[in-house]
Measured scan of single mutants.
Amino acid sequence: MASDGVVVEIGKVTGSVGTTVEIPVYFRGVPSKGIANCDFVFRYDPNVLEIIGIDPGDIIVDPNPTKSFDTAIYPDRKIIVFLFAEDSGTGAYAITKDGVFAKIRATVKSSAPGYITFDEVGGFADNDLVEQKVSFIDGGVNVGNATPTKGATPTNTATPTK
């Protein structure tokens, strides 16, 4: 695992066909100046998982989280898009600690492993708008004895992609 920078880890949970599971997305290594904004994309298989919603985690402190935390689910493109932009203008609602960034709610549709993997990152910046190093650890849903650990090695991303 990367020793510096922010680590975004997609949790690994267990479920069975027809059940709804909650998959946490963790941030670790949050910089001392916090995270003022970030955007990134995960990939998944809508034939295996139906993403039914995404909720902000406990490290989102904006009293009205829909102003700073936004997501979009595109089953036709097989992606989930995340956007966080601190909304106070003063840094008061920045992410300042490690913990759960988001909770992905999904219904298991198939007995195949439900991988959720890193696809791309736009950027991560602290309260001074300084770009942060970030790496990703894939996860998803274990169905029966299947284990979604494909790509469990962190993917280092030093520069934003478009």
Rank of each mutant, 00 (worst) to 15 (best):
V48C: 05
R105F: 04
V25S: 08
P160R: 12
G34H: 04
G140W: 06
S32N: 06
T147K: 12
A106Y: 13
A36M: 01
I80L: 04
P113L: 11
D39C: 00
G57E: 12
K78N: 03
T159G: 09
G99V: 10
E86S: 01
K78V: 03
N64T: 11
T117H: 12
T96C: 04
A112R: 13
A36Q: 01
V21K: 13
F124N: 00
A112P: 07
I52T: 10
T117S: 10
G91V: 03
I80H: 10
F101T: 08
A102S: 14
P160T: 13
K133G: 04
G15L: 07
F40A: 03
I104S: 04
P24S: 05
D39L: 00
V13M: 03
G34L: 06
F124M: 03
E86L: 01
P56V: 11
P160G: 12
E131K: 01
A125F: 00
T14D: 13
G34A: 06
I137P: 07
G122F: 00
Y93W: 14
P65C: 07
R28S: 12
R28T: 08
P63E: 15
V6E: 11
A106I: 08
F40D: 06
K103R: 10
D4E: 03
D128L: 04
S135C: 08
P24M: 04
V21E: 14
D76Y: 02
S135E: 04
K67R: 09
E50D: 12
A112H: 11
N37T: 00
G89L: 03
I104V: 08
T14W: 01
K33A: 11
A152H: 11
S16N: 14
A112E: 08
T14N: 07
F101D: 04
P113E: 11
P56N: 05
N47G: 13
C38N: 14
V141R: 12
Y26H: 08
I10R: 00
F40V: 02
I23W: 15
D4N: 08
I35Y: 02
S3R: 08
A146G: 07
V130E: 07
N64M: 08
R77S: 04
D98P: 08
G15P: 09
Y93H: 14
V108Q: 14
P24C: 06
V134C: 06
A36E: 01
V17E: 14
V81I: 10
E9C: 05
V13L: 04
P154A: 09
D126R: 02
V8Q: 03
K103A: 06
T19N: 14
Y115F: 03
V21P: 07
G29I: 14
G123K: 00
S135L: 11
D4Y: 07
G151F: 13
I95K: 01
R105L: 13
D62N: 13
V41F: 01
A72G: 02
V7Q: 05
P46S: 06
F82C: 02
A94E: 07
T96Q: 03
D70F: 15
T66Q: 09
D55N: 13
P31F: 05
P24E: 04
G139D: 06
Y115D: 07
A125Y: 00
E120D: 05
Y44A: 11
S111N: 13
T155Y: 09
V21F: 13
I80D: 15
G18N: 07
T107C: 05
L129V: 06
V41D: 01
G99K: 12
R43T: 06
T96G: 11
I51K: 08
I52N: 06
L129H: 02
P63L: 15
D98T: 10
N156M: 06
V30H: 08
D76T: 05
D126S: 04
I52F: 07
S110K: 15
T153V: 14
R43M: 04
I60N: 10
R43V: 10
K103C: 15
D58R: 12
K150Q: 13
K33V: 03
K133W: 13
V130F: 09
S3M: 04
F27R: 00
D126T: 03
P160K: 15
T157S: 11
F69D: 02
G151Q: 13
P31S: 11
K109C: 08
V81L: 01
R43Q: 07
P31R: 10
D87R: 15
V6F: 15
K150L: 13
M1I: 13
I79T: 01
I137W: 10
I23A: 09
C38A: 08
G29Y: 08
F27G: 10
P75E: 04
I80Q: 09
V8H: 00
V141Q: 13
T20N: 07
I104G: 06
L49P: 13
T14A: 11
L49Q: 15
G144D: 08
D98H: 08
G53P: 11
K109E: 04
K150S: 11
I54Y: 02
T14F: 12
V81N: 00
P24R: 05
V7Y: 05
A85N: 00
T149N: 13
A152D: 09
E9M: 02
G89P: 04
A146T: 09
T66M: 05
S16I: 11
D4Q: 09
A146L: 09
K150N: 11
I60C: 05
S135M: 03
G18R: 07
A92M: 14
E131V: 02
E9I: 08
F136S: 11
E50H: 08
G151Y: 13
K97C: 05
I80S: 14
T20P: 12
K103Y: 15
E120G: 03
D138Y: 08
D138P: 11
S3G: 15
D128A: 06
F69W: 15
A152S: 10
N142L: 12
A146D: 11
S32Q: 07
E22G: 06
A146S: 09
S111V: 03
G139P: 02
R105P: 11
P63Q: 15
A146M: 13
D55W: 14
V41T: 01
G139N: 15
R105Q: 10
S32V: 08
T71D: 09
D128M: 05
S16M: 15
Y93D: 09
K150F: 07
T157L: 11
P75W: 07
F101N: 11
P154M: 08
F40R: 00
V61I: 08
P31L: 03
I95L: 04
G139K: 05
G99C: 06
P24K: 03
F118G: 06
T153M: 06
N64W: 08
V6G: 07
S88E: 02
K78G: 13
N64C: 10
D58A: 06
R105D: 09
Y74L: 01
G29Q: 13
V134H: 02
I23T: 06
Q132A: 10
V130W: 09
V143S: 11
P75C: 04
S32E: 15
S110R: 13
V100F: 13
G139V: 03
L49C: 04
D128T: 07
